[in-house]
Every structure is written in C-alpha cells, then in structure tokens.
Amino acid sequence: MKVQSDLLFTAISTLVLGIVISFHASKMPWSCSGIPGPAVFPLIIGVALILLSVANIVLSLTGRSASPGKTSAKERFKALWIIGVSVAYFLLLKPIGFVVLTPIYVICLIAGLIDWVTVRQEKVGAKVVVEMILLGGAVTAAVFLVFAKVFLVSLP
C-alpha cells in the first residue's frame, strides 16, 4: 500500500479547484427568466470535480491508481529549465522585442537540453555552439518571415 504522492498532489489540486469553482458559482444568479442561470453548470462541474477528486485521492492513497513511471531529478530539470526560460521569454518579450530575444531564447533552450558531458567527451563543443547560434538565427528569421511578413502578424 504505497502512497503515490504525485498523484495525490494532482488529485488534491483538482479538489481545491472544485471547491473554488463551486464557491464562485454559488454567487452567480441561479435562475434567470425561468431557466437555469449562469450558476448551474459551473456548480455541477464544481461538485463533480470534488467528488471525482475524492475518488482519486482514495485511489492514490491506496496505491491503486494507474501511473506512469517515475522520473529522475536530472530528467525533471530539463522540463523545469524549459519552463523557466520560457517564462523569462514571455516577460521580456514586450520590452526587448521578438527579433532580438528569440535567438537568445533558442540558444538558452538548446544549452539546457544538450548533454554537455557527451559533448565534452566527443570534443565537439565548438561545432555544437556554432550549430546553436545558427539555429537560433535561422528559426527567428524563418518565423519572422512567415508570420510577420506573409501573414502580417505584428510581432512585438
């Protein structure tokens, strides 16, 4: 009977969400001109989420929930790196602008994803760095051309 903690975490989150939704929904009009009002569906959803979350909590506490494999900290770092860099990109996009920021973004992402140990072993550091910079520039140029020039989307 092992407790599956990550599953528990998600289940509790959905439970909390269900409670929040139900709370907000209860403040909306229940009925308007004789028909169910804006409150009804969200309330149903909120209650359903609460019930299902409880079921999931029970399942994860008793170790019966189906779950994909575990990931190591190193692997998880890759994903967290992407999230972090992407959030930074999002925040800096307006002040810095697309054309300048995107190559940097691409290079940072690649840098975080590359297995530097192997690179050092195979002594291809220089080649890898050049590839990174080239890709950064190429992606920015291609996207800019297609989105901004052809489709006239005004990128920041």
């Binding site: 992407i82 992407s86 990109y89 999002f90 996009l93 307006k94 697309f98 995107t102 973004y105 691409v106 992402l109 690649i110 994803l113 590359i114 590839e131 890709l135 992606v139 920015t140 996207v143 989105f147 489709f151 989307v153 005004s154 990128l155 920041p156």
Partner: peptide, 24 residues
Amino acid sequence: KDQYLLPIIAVLSIVGAYSIRSSL
C-alpha cells in the same frame, strides 16, 4: 535531434499562440 527540434516547437508554440489575437 531533440535538442534542436524542441526549441523550434517552443518558438512555434509561442508565436502561434500570439498570432491569433496579436496578444501577449
């Protein structure tokens, strides 16, 4: 290679999401 493909997808996702309403 993944380390090149994933950043490309990331950029596409961001720009794609932006383009619908030109909205950050």
